[in-house]
Amino acid sequence: MSLADTLQELKESATGRIARASSLDELEAIRVETVGRKGVLAGAGKEMAQVAKDERAAMGQLLNAVKAAIESALEERTSAFQAAALTARLDAEWMDLTVPAPGVNPGALHPVTQVQRYLEDVFTSMGFAVLSGPEVETEFHNFDALNIPPTHPARDMQDTFWLEGGRLLRTHTSPVQVRGMKRLGAPLRMIAPGRVFRNEEVDPSHEHTFYQLEGMMVDREVSIAHMLYFMKTLLKEIFQREVTVRLRPGYFPFVEPGFELDIQCLLCGGGGCAVCKYTGWVELLPCGLVHPNVLRAGGIDPGEWNGFAFGLGLTRLAMMRYGIDDIRLLQSGDLRFLNQFR
């Protein structure tokens, strides 16, 4: 048999075996046997010397072509095996991610914390300082400094928790007005969120412990018109929509004039519904121009400065935002309730 025939036959038998091979190992064996360094083709290369000189070039080409054909067939089949193996591995790696992830899920911040944080951000962006005040207060800061004379009903035993030594638990966040004025002076923009206490029986809509946010702005020229603008802007931020507000007279000793600020009912748009008791308006916050006596108590000259102040019910806002219908849940420590605010 001529060398050419031998090569031709080798090519055919090798490609045939490659096509029939059933594993990567088998392919490797064929590779070693045929195109390996000590394989058949290498042996055929040695026989080249005996080939006639004029045929040598053609024979060399043939040898290369056979080698290339076998290698290409090996390559192709190897890739196919690798692809199949990868596919099989990936298939074996099927998993179920619908089972719960190991580890701990995040907890929730208290709904009042979340509302308070949101409001603090809103106010800070409007240039307000966020201040704190003590929960145990003096009579002076809680009452006298706020123009609440000793005979005012707010001082009655039924409203205030009195402590030994003439101290009391603050009944509102308003004492921080005076503390803030003393600390920062005028002009001033501040809020003071915090826990307050009223001596009231607890029921679904009353708590003896709840949260307020006091706000105050003191400057040279502060008018009702400015307060209105500010409140509208603020409420737009809080409710994330335009709100219609109205002021009506309200009596609070630390402001003059004093107002109740109502917003047009967000539920019915003012048409009247159960939430607004069919009036179209919802009472939202008390506010007013700071009484000159309060400015004086804060060490600020009312002839030179004036301001407005307001009080937001944080607890109430949280209840409105989350649709909470029983105020007692907020202090219950019941995780079935609190975990809903994740």
């Binding site: 995040p106 412990t209 975990n339």
Partner: peptide, 9 residues
């Protein structure tokens, strides 16, 4: 993973 509670003073 801790959930915030508020308790009375």
């Amino acid at each position: 993973g801790f959930t915030e509670v508020y308790n009375y003073s």
